[in-house]
């Protein structure tokens, strides 16, 4: 059976983990030439352009080196600065329990770090960023959904429920509280279709996830 023809009731843990992984990677750094080529080859653009902007595909037809450079500049402008930018860290956007927010290394940074560590995961030595970077949160979800998928393969109900409960808590307590708003800001500020459509996709996906997981 063709994968695409399968009845779509729900997306499974493996597919969710792929999407989280992809999102994690594209927000982590400027998109590399290799990744761009992979995105082009994978059919991903078609999916985005069907729902997002039809022009995206066209944009990607140009010279790959130029496109890489253009996207790198946009990434810096949007997420790093100099000047006004949209920091991809939770503590800048999320006011936790009426506490402080709007700054790096805030209360929610500590909360995210503790949350992640309490599940038996740790920050890799090579990671030099701040613990509540959007890519960290997405990669954390990727790992959880991967584990859920493994547990489903071996039919370990207790484990499946454990990972689902962690995913649910993290979506409700963290990702759901700030990522949709963060995406809205990118949609409003982006000058390149890629990041605008990526933000659209991200926002829709997280909203979909919140809805799906709260209905479990």
């Amino acid at each position: 059976m063709n994968l695409m023809e399968k009845t779509i009731d729900k997306i499974d843990a493996e597919q969710r983990s792929v999407i989280y992984g992809l999102l994690s990677e594209v927000y982590m750094n400027e998109v590399s030439r290799d990744l761009l080529e992979q995105i082009k080859a994978s059919g991903l653009l078609e999916i985005i352009s069907e729902s997002g902007s039809k022009e995206l595909n066209l944009h990607f037809q140009g010279d790959i080196n130029e496109l890489t450079e253009e996207l790198a500049c946009e990434y810096s402008r949007l997420f790093i600065g100099p000047g006004k930018h949209i920091s991809p860290h939770e503590s800048v956007h999320h006011q936790l329990d009426g506490g402080d927010w709007g700054k790096l290394w805030g209360e929610s940074t500590v909360a995210v770090q503790n949350f992640i560590k309490s599940t038996g995961m740790t920050y890799l030595d090579d990671f030099k960023g701040i613990p509540d970077h959007i890519s960290v949160e997405f990669e954390f979800m990727k790992q959880l959904t991967l584990q859920e998928e493994e547990a489903r393969k071996t039919q370990e109900t207790e484990k499946i429920n454990y990972y689902l409960s962690i995913e649910k808590r993290f979506l409700i307590e963290h990702i759901g509280c700030w990522v949709p708003g963060f995406c809205k800001k990118i949609i409003e500020s982006s000058e390149l279709l890629f990041y605008r459509d990526l933000a659209l996709l991200t926002k829709s996906f997280i909203e979909f996830e919140l809805k799906a997981i709260t209905n479990e």
């Binding site: 999407i19 994978s42 990669e139 990727k142 790992q143």
Partner: peptide, 29 residues
């Protein structure tokens, strides 16, 4: 769309093409 997105990604991974970087940002494990 999400189903297709996941499936495309998974299929690409399965045949060793596409997201060869295993879509890992390298932050947590």
């Amino acid at each position: 769309d999400f189903f297709r997105l996941g499936a495309v990604g998974a299929a690409a991974l399965a045949i060793g093409k596409g997201f060869e970087s295993k879509t890992l940002a390298g932050t947590v494990d």
